[in-house]
Design a binder for these strands. Structure first.
Lengths: 231, 231
DNA sequence: CTAACATTCTATTGCTTAATAGAATGTTAG
DNA sequence: CTAACATTCTATTAAGCAATAGAATGTTAG
């Protein structure tokens, strides 16, 4: 006669689904998802995350505690700051699967996005591997307009980093005889749209790429790292 | 000057993450996940689902309404009954991604499962494609012990259906000179374990396969259908 | 048309959770 | 050792949600 912690099938199921539901609970708040999304771009301090998700620091900390308790993020102290990051690659994959399903199930998402990003004629029209080839041969400049730290965490091959808030100041260094392809965190991030608008106003030949590193890697393409990836 | 429904980046983000969070909200309840999981095996009536998840019918209906509002399931009326099913293939993929992440992040899941299913020596040890080959050549009998309707919705190639509750009655029809490989809904479903235990007690040479149709298809292998799949 | 049935709708209860603010912890600079 | 800082912990309040039960809807069989 065996006396396990789990006694019958019902107890087993209850235990398992209870654990699975922890994920749902953690991802049932828009603000937490926003935090999770930006954490997929690299580690960030509580303050940065609070700023990013438009939360006061205490509240952001509380949300992070929830994400931590659900094991979706890990924390690391460096001096006075605590840096949070995605616990695992499986978290990015989960986030991508969630997004994919939501996009497919909620037509309103596509509608809202199309309405905000109504720049179809100035988006990259060719395939990702064509883009990779052009970038490798130096025919285009791939421009990463995310904050420097995110670029350093991972970026598209041959990409150059000019964070959005330095773009106005640094744009003189960009070539005027080559096409520029600007990208940022992904299809819902506004940075690349702002960048492409700004650069176009200044006469550059610029296209917007609605990919981020997650989408790029998810398509099976390689990424580049300034410092070697930690895993 | 453009006046969109969505005015600024913050409004856009809030709208988008609000939608994404609907998924989390819908999957934040263990019982709803249990419903979703079994719906991945094929459509079911409210009553069946209530029975399966050990809920009273009213409560099950309420949970289904939540899943429906989040567009994770669809409903179809047939006579007095209403049959719910997974809205989309992307829902299965989402569920698999959730499970994969939870398994990876929560060591306790593996512990609980190992503790309940402590039959490593009587589990299928060879690869899925080896199994497929053996099944095709008729060297083994692949046995689906789920309810008939789930078998009909989709099953492993060359599998034979004997629902668990008919197994005792029908086991005489199984060969004694061949290995039997029993499977059910997946790694957390107890049916195949019950089946393999029962058959072993009656002297059959039986192994348990911890896959279900989801895991099988996710591994890139083909499924078989009694009636053609609806998509 | 009526009875039986499957399911949903409505209302009530108690529990969980998000946001907020004040106190406490741990870290560094001087 | 103290002040300044980043973050967490604790408590409070208000909002949201799961479970339950009774009423209502829609469907079929007779």
């Amino acid at each position: 006669m065996k006396t396990n912690a789990i006694s019958g099938p019902r107890r087993l199921k209850d235990t398992l689904y209870e654990h699975f539901a922890r994920i749902g609970k953690a991802t049932s708040s828009p603000k937490r998802l926003e935090i999770l999304d930006v954490l997929c771009q690299g580690e960030k301090s509580v303050e940065e995350l609070a700023l990013h998700a438009q939360l006061d620091v205490k509240n952001a900390s509380a949300h992070l505690r929830v994400l931590f308790a659900s094991r979706l993020v890990t924390a690391r102290r460096e001096g006075k700051r605590i840096f949070y990051s995605i616990a695992d690659e499986s978290v990015c994959e989960y986030w991508l699967a969630t997004r994919a399903m939501a996009e497919r199930r909620f037509a309103e998402i596509e509608r809202v996005v199309k309405c905000y990003f109504d720049d179809r004629e100035t988006m990259v029209a060719y395939d990702r591997d064509v883009l990779l080839g052009k970038a490798r041969r130096g025919e285009i400049v791939v421009l990463d307009v995310r904050p420097k730290s995110e670029y350093e965490h991972a970026h598209l091959p041959h990409a150059r980093s000019i964070p959005m808030d330095e773009l106005e100041r640094c744009m003189a260094s960009l070539p005027r005889n080559k096409q520029i392809v600007a990208y940022c965190r992904g299809p819902y991030c506004v940075l690349s749209l702002q960048a492409s608008t700004l650069l176009r106003e200044h006469g550059f030949d610029v296209l917007r790429l609605p990919d981020g590193v997650l989408e790029w890697r998810n398509a099976g393409l390689p990424l580049a790292y300034t410092s070697p990836p930690k895993e």
